[in-house]
Design a protein around this nucleic acid. Structure first.
Length: 302
DNA sequence: GGAATAACCTGGATGC
DNA sequence: TGCATCCAGGTTATTC
């Protein structure tokens, strides 16, 4: 499932191939991939064709490509994408055969790499692309990772900075945790508080910090919050280094290759297997329409 | 306004 | 072998 590390791997793979490229043609084969676009397929195709793409930028799980950037900023729109559960952005040679679950294909001409295609494929159709206006960031800092412009797509404006963003307002995160009567895991998954964390890395960070996911956020000590935020950053960084987490074919980089972090997981997906710290069997339990994986000995509700 | 929940969707795994 | 059901989960709209 694409979370921050997986999306960053995709962004880093796309950036050299698309920055400065001109869009030759756009083909939308499934309009469900435009659920975040304010218009139909022909509108999307018309608004992207002929435009010049800027550097790929990411905030949390969203990434975007500014349109008609002149190198010193100035773009007013961007193609913004979210991979959802199973979305893939693949780089292919021009004229490559259709991918399984292909939804949108963007043909490009790059001044160095020549003609190529960016293919958006998505099995479960939770992901989407859209053309969206760029708006100024509320804090005056760069909109996301990958570019210095202080703008971001309007539909991403409500998304908080991610855990690896140096401009993250950590004091706000701490204050929200201290005031909330919700379970701490629910807040970790709240993209409006801190973005980029999904179910996999929430479980991993909570295991590393020895915190039960149902623990009330306001009951955490300052020390525990510090430990948790450090583990969130550590887990995301390690996953990024290992190319993200791949359980099946639903997450791959732009070249179709899987990541290796699944081999480093301590909690997520390890139900019944021994805890790497104490040997107790990892358990899985229902948590708001999804699952939580914990070590019942290391992660007790206090 | 904050919190909780349902709905969206497809294909692999499982059970009968 | 074939069919039915369950499950995975990010985001958003709806409800409380």
């Amino acid at each position: 499932m694409p979370e921050l590390p997986e999306v960053e791997v995709v962004r880093a793979g796309l950036a050299p191939a698309v920055t400065g490229a001109t869009v030759l043609a756009v083909a939308v084969s499934d309009e469900r991939a435009l659920t975040r676009h304010d218009g139909d397929a022909s509108d999307f195709e018309a608004r992207v064709t002929g435009r010049r793409l800027g550097a790929a930028v990411r905030r949390g799980k969203f990434l975007w490509l500014p349109l008609d950037a002149d190198g010193s900023g100035g773009a007013h729109e961007a193609v913004v994408g979210h991979l959802g559960m199973s979305g893939q952005l693949l780089l292919r040679v021009s004229g490559a055969p259709p991918e399984r679950h292909e939804r949108i294909r963007i043909d490009l001409a790059h001044p160095v790499h020549g003609e190529l295609a960016v293919v958006f494929a998505d099995q479960r159709t939770f992901g989407s692309l859209a053309v969206d206006p760029l708006v100024a960031t509320a804090d005056g800092e760069p909109g996301g990772f990958g570019a210095d412009e202080r703008v971001l797509p309007a539909q991403v404006a409500h998304i908080a900075r991610d855990a690896l963003d140096p401009a993250l307002d950590e004091a706000r995160v701490r204050a929200r945790l201290a005031a909330s009567s919700s379970a701490v895991k629910r807040l970790l998954l709240d993209q409006g508080l801190v973005s980029g964390i999904g179910n996999i890395y929430a479980d991993e960070a909570l295991w590393a910090a020895r915190i039960h996911p149902e623990t009330l956020a306001r009951s955490l000590s300052t020390r525990a919050v510090t430990r948790l935020l450090a583990e969130v950053r550590s887990v995301l960084h390690k996953a990024l280094v290992e190319g993200g987490t791949s359980f099946d074919a639903q997450y791959v980089n732009v070249n179709g290759q899987a990541g290796y972090f699944a081999h480093s997981l301590h909690a997520y997906g390890r139900e019944g297997e021994p805890c790497h710290r104490c040997g107790t069997a990892i358990t899985r339990s229902a948590f708001t329409n999804r699952s939580s994986h914990i070590c019942p000995r290391c992660q007790r509700i206090r």
